[in-house]
Simulated assay, not measured.
Amino acid sequence: MTVAATRIGHDAERVAALEAYGLLDSELESRFVGYLTMVADFFGMNQAAIAIADDSDLIIKASVGLGDAVRIPLQGSFTEAALMSGEPVVVEDGSSDARFHDHPSVVAAPFLRSFAVSPLHAAGGERIGVFALADPRPRSFSGAELQNISRIVSWVEAELAAERESQRARDVQRALQPPVKLDVPGYDVDGILIASHDVGGDFYDWRSDATGVALTLGDVMGKGTGAALLAATIRGALKTSVVTEPGCVESRVATAAVALDEEFAAAEAFSTLFHAHLELADGHVAYIDAGHGLAAHLRPDGRSALLSANNQPFGLNPVDSWQVGTVTLEAGDTLMVVSDGMLELGDGTLSALLTDLADLGSAPRLAEAVESLILRRSGRSAPPDDVCIVRVRRH
């Protein structure tokens, strides 16, 4: 057998790209299977596959017509020829092609005759894998069909790159979340964020200082990576202001608003925001609610009340001053701050929300209670909209 390629071997840049894309250790990509089925049918081909290449094997990420195949030796294969040349390898009849006429896949099962294999490139140009079509029948490929294959390859490359960016955004969002619980004397402080998509615009944070705890929960207009990036920017600005403006919620929010004015204008976005400072000694909470309106004071006797939304949303327009509200947590009281995803889990009314918050407020483990509620109401683990919660319970 003569193949115009030698073993691809170890390529540090290619391996680095595969690791950055998270493809070496990932499972089969089921999201591509339906698309490959459609593509195989469109071209009238028996097999279609998306695969990536490690040092010695072709690792199947999604396929149609290949059965349970997961790894295929790369050396001397059609795919290695495409990867080595960097160009598509198109064969109309393998049995009469000098490069492949004695290839094992041609002379024995699955007795392939026609195939089109195109290299897949990472964003930096590294050849990380292939898109392949194959069939046991000889066939020709028109110029229009080759152009369509090229478009498919571009789409697959874009999808892989988008998934990489989404994964990076998920990693950043997870890294920016505070610990699950904050240990402070006399109080339990915990929170949770469950995104409806890969990433979202909801965020929460807390930070201890000399006298208490700064608490933040926000909901950026929009969804996806853009909202998540702006959420991270807001969170960072508020965290900085907590350090530079200790104990004064008005100064903190005002400082962050001025710092972020250009970012909000450029993004044409805004955020609802609840930012507060809890004094540990007496349970006094000073807060600014910027168009959020979803913070509740729950008492152990069953009484509950929503705190007032006393300011416009964060980032809409510069304001001269921010109105500060107050509430005091007595022994047994709970402060619950949530995003509007909690409304969508109920019937959309504030009375139903308060009922849900009372249940979550008394739950021993917040995360388990929220996950159970989402599954019970929506029938799936991901909520219809991002759900973000901060809970403060005074002993």
Rank of each mutant, 00 (worst) to 15 (best):
L83H: 11
M84T: 12
M84R: 15
S85M: 03
G86K: 07
E87M: 12
P88C: 01
V89E: 04
V89F: 07
V89M: 09
V90F: 09
V90R: 08
E92I: 08
D93A: 08
G94N: 03
G94Y: 03
G94H: 06
S95C: 09
S95Y: 03
S96A: 12
S96D: 08
R99N: 05
H101D: 05
D102N: 13
H103R: 03
H103Q: 04
H103N: 14
P104H: 06
P104D: 02
S105A: 14
S105W: 14
S105I: 01
V106I: 15
V106D: 02
A108G: 14
A108F: 04
P110W: 05
F111L: 05
R113G: 09
R113L: 06
S114R: 14
S114H: 06
S114A: 15
S114E: 05
F115Q: 12
S118D: 00
H121I: 01
H121R: 15
G124Y: 00
G124E: 07
E126M: 10
R127E: 04
I128F: 13
G129K: 13
F131R: 06
L133P: 11
L133T: 00
D135Y: 04
R137G: 04
R137H: 10
P138W: 09
P138A: 06
R139C: 04
S140T: 13
S142F: 01
S142C: 02
A144G: 12
E145T: 02
L146W: 02
L146N: 05
Q147F: 10
N148S: 12
I149T: 01
S150M: 02
R151L: 15
I152A: 10
V153D: 07
V153W: 05
V153G: 10
V153A: 11
S154V: 07
S154T: 14
S154G: 13
W155D: 04
V156N: 06
V156Q: 05
V156L: 09
E157S: 11
E157Q: 14
E157D: 06
E157I: 01
A158D: 05
A158N: 11
A158Y: 04
A162W: 01
A162L: 15
A162H: 11
E163T: 12
R164H: 10
R164G: 06
R164E: 09
E165V: 00
Q167T: 14
R168F: 08
R168M: 13
R168L: 13
R168P: 00
A169F: 05
A169L: 04
R170V: 04
R170Q: 14
V172P: 08
V172N: 06
Q173D: 06
Q173G: 10
R174T: 02
A175M: 14
L176N: 08
Q177N: 07
P178K: 04
P179W: 03
V180R: 15
V180T: 15
L182M: 13
G186E: 03
G186M: 05
G186C: 10
D190M: 03
D190T: 01
D190Q: 11
L193N: 12
L193K: 13
L193G: 07
I194G: 03
I194M: 12
I194Y: 11
A195K: 10
A195D: 03
S196K: 08
S196D: 07
S196R: 09
H197N: 13
H197V: 00
H197L: 15
D198K: 14
G200F: 03
G201H: 03
G201M: 03
